[in-house]
Computed example of a mutant assay.
Amino acid sequence: MIRALVVDDSAVLRRLISNVLASDPEIEVVGTAVDGLDAIEKADVLRPDVMTLDVEMPRLDGLGAVKEISSRHPRLPVIMFSTLTEKGASATLQALSNGASDYVAKPTGATSFADALDIVRDELLPRVKALVAARRIVAAAPPRTVTPVKVTTTPEVLVIACSTGGPDALSTVLAELPSSFALPVLVTQHMPPVFTTQFATRLDRVSPLQVREAADGDVVRRGEVLLAPGDFHLRLSRSAGVVRATLDQGPRENFCRPAADPLLRSAAQVYGAGVLCLVLTGMGSDGLEGARVVVDRGGRVVVQDAATSVVWGMPGAVSNAGLAHEVLPLPAIAPRLAALIGAVAIG
């Protein structure tokens, strides 16, 4: 059984979240808390496997609580509950920096309690199970890697895919790339509108490269990072020798929009063997089929390893399919990317 602790100052939301969790036969709600101080005390006593945590609460809010809880219980997954507003996005991104594992949006658009239950159930249960399963893995199976044909094409573009745990991992990679990194960088991070705008601003502050949210028609330039905006797929197209970003609200892929597969496929079509693909931590398998196209076109794929991933879903799917040329711990990724850019012959 997965033991869950629910933390929210709203009695209605505590009941809603508890009902959603208790509806799954694999999950037991072992307690509830009404604010951050109560959450810290009950986490110490109850030792849950997962915690849901509100952002705005009296006495001690979610930002302060998650920082203390992650210090005391570093392997406890904490899922933030946030509003889809600028204030909610900013607080949630800060909570992720403070140690939270993921977040779920509050069902503000629900028309009934039953509707709200369905919305939260669809978003929360997969995250709870994936995060707890990741923490319970003692030793990951040795990753499969392809034995690539020697690559003699200098990389022309870096495309990055990430989801759960991605904000922290992506921040680490982009902060450590050198200012001389001479490739355009395109990123798909599973994230809703408003959140991506705030996230791009945060990344721009920590990275020596210029980072911004992509706009339809943006010219893709070296040394610049374009982030897919929430609810839009980001793709690449080339016309008259100029590569541009295109945005669309086509069907969701892997239940996501933005999804990584459209970006990876289009990059492979535009740049061929010049694609350098990085798949970071994330739940699910988005990026798998896109990575397959990248490899088929002669590009190179690097994935984050299981030990440093919050959830080894996306990178694990690529690795287990034999599509990863390299499987690296997070601290080694930026130096390796920089080294690959300086090499003409790779492999």
Rank of each mutant, 00 (worst) to 15 (best):
E26S: 15
G31K: 03
L76M: 13
A100W: 01
A4E: 02
D49M: 05
M80F: 00
R14N: 12
S23H: 12
D9G: 06
T32G: 01
L13Q: 14
K87M: 08
P48A: 15
L5Y: 05
R72F: 05
L63E: 01
D8V: 02
K42D: 10
R75N: 09
P58K: 08
R14P: 05
P58M: 10
V78P: 02
V6W: 13
R47C: 11
Y103A: 03
A95G: 03
S23E: 10
L21R: 04
D9F: 10
S82F: 00
S70T: 14
L46R: 11
D61K: 13
L37A: 15
K106L: 05
Y103K: 02
L13P: 04
G64A: 11
T108S: 13
P107D: 04
V7D: 00
A33M: 10
D102M: 04
P107E: 01
V50A: 13
S70H: 14
A43I: 14
V6C: 14
I40T: 10
N98I: 03
T52M: 04
L53Q: 05
A105G: 12
V34Y: 13
A43H: 09
A65N: 02
V20T: 03
G88E: 01
S97C: 05
L5V: 04
N98P: 11
E56Y: 13
V30G: 08
D35S: 05
P25A: 13
K87A: 15
A39W: 11
L76F: 07
T52I: 05
L21V: 12
G99S: 10
L16E: 02
R15D: 06
S71D: 10
I27D: 08
E56G: 07
I69T: 04
A100Q: 00
G36K: 14
L53A: 00
P25F: 12
V29I: 12
V20G: 06
V20R: 04
S90P: 11
L53F: 09
M80K: 01
V50G: 08
M57N: 14
A4H: 07
S82K: 05
L53W: 04
V55A: 15
D54M: 00
D8H: 12
A43Y: 10
R14M: 09
E56S: 15
S90W: 14
S101H: 05
S18N: 01
R72L: 15
Y103H: 03
A33D: 13
A11C: 03
E56D: 15
